[in-house]
Design a binder for these strands. Structure first.
Length: 336
DNA sequence: ACTCATGATTTCCA
DNA sequence: TGGAAATCATGAGT
């Protein structure tokens, strides 16, 4: 984890500020001085601070200012120390040269050469000190930025790159460490962000697949229900039609069925008490007459109960699954 | 203002 | 420790 962070920081520094090369140069760099201008005029690394609630940013801003100040004091302290050391080194070199006068001739060139060499050495030390401070400031700014930044969506290039990789490896969308590093570099995001993205992407594409599957199931279920309802309607209509076309006389000769079934679908034909001269329904086979249930039972002929069953699967488009044998049918509770 | 997308964080597990 | 899953918080479109 720490390693990852360091790697990322190194990348940032290299790509954004090319600080690494600054270390290699012998000369004081204007870039370093630019960064160290923060000492005199610290600028908070987050722009939103001006447009949003002050309280929200204050602690973070305080942290940044304190951090910069600490770096500044450290530089000043060490610079002062270097200056003191320079003085004493120069004084010491004077002493040495003077002592050398006893062995060899010493002229002004000797003095200026050694002073130049010593000064150069201390200048380099100071340059390194300032480069070091500049690095610390950049890191501080990055930390602050990290802590204060609200979530930003990745740009299109980034999401495209990640998306392409994901799609190309959709059978096994698990990038290796090396591939994660490559993607991070390519997308200019952190390795941890690559990890987040793939974590999110994997779980979310999985959920999406499940959702689509479920929607398909629901669609088919709805379709089946719709068909069932249409069938019910057709049955009801056909029943009504059959009922209205039947004459009272024809009712008499209709075969009998289970009375409770009749109650469910059609009213029992009762003797007409108001107009007793009308033909009264009679008893057939000793049972009260009633209209035949829609024909969704198979023909069994005489079912041994003296009742006759009709078939009319074709009428309602029903599929006859199986032909129950008489014994089975007699024991079926077909209403319930 | 609502709602969904999306990046980040947290929690749990092998 | 890496990944799955749940959850949080913000971005962005309406």
């Amino acid at each position: 984890m720490l390693h990852e962070v360091l790697l990322e920081r190194k990348d940032i520094i290299r790509s954004r500020m090319s600080l690494v090369s600054l270390y290699e140069t012998e000369e004081p760099s204007s870039e370093i001085e630019e960064i160290l201008a923060q000492f005199e005029n610290p600028t908070f690394p987050i722009e939103e601070v001006n447009t949003e609630k002050e309280e929200e940013w204050q602690p973070l801003e305080r942290k940044y200012l304190d951090g910069v100040n600490q770096i500044k004091e450290n530089v000043q302290e060490k610079t002062a120390q270097l200056d003191k050391d320079l003085e004493s080194s120069l004084a010491h070199s004077d002493e040495i040269l003077k002592s050398h006068r006893d062995f060899r001739p010493i002229d002004d060139r000797d003095y200026s050469n050694i002073k130049l060499a010593i000064s150069k050495h201390f200048d380099q030390a100071k340059t390194n000190l300032r480069a070091d401070a500049a690095t610390k400031i950049l890191m501080l700014r990055r930390d602050i930025e990290q802590q204060g930044r609200k979530r930003r969506n990745f740009d299109k290039n980034t999401t495209d790159t990640l998306q392409n990789w994901f799609h190309d490896h959709r059978t096994n969308p698990y990038p290796s460490d090396q591939e994660k590093a490559d993607l991070a570099k390519q997308c200019n995001i952190k390795i941890s962000q690559v990890n987040n993205w793939f974590g999110n992407q994997r779980i979310r594409s999985k959920h999406q697949a499940l959702r689509i599957e479920e929607e398909e199931r629901n669609r088919l279920a709805a379709l089946a229900a719709e068909e069932a309802e249409a069938m019910q309607t057709a049955i009801a209509e056909a029943t009504a039609a059959a009922s209205s076309s039947l004459t009272a006389a024809s009712l008499i000769n209709l075969p009998l069925m289970n009375p409770s079934m009749q109650a469910m679908v059609l009213p029992t034909v009762q003797p007409n008490l108001v107009q007793p001269n009308l033909v009264q329904p009679t008893l057939i086979n000793g049972a009260p007459g009633f209209l035949q249930q829609p024909h969704y039972f198979p023909t069994l002929g005489d079912n041994t109960n003296g009742q006759h069953f009709y078939t009319d699967f074709e009428t309602f488009g029903l599929v006859q699954h199986q032909q129950p044998d008489a014994e089975q049918f007699n024991t079926i509770n077909y209403l319930g």
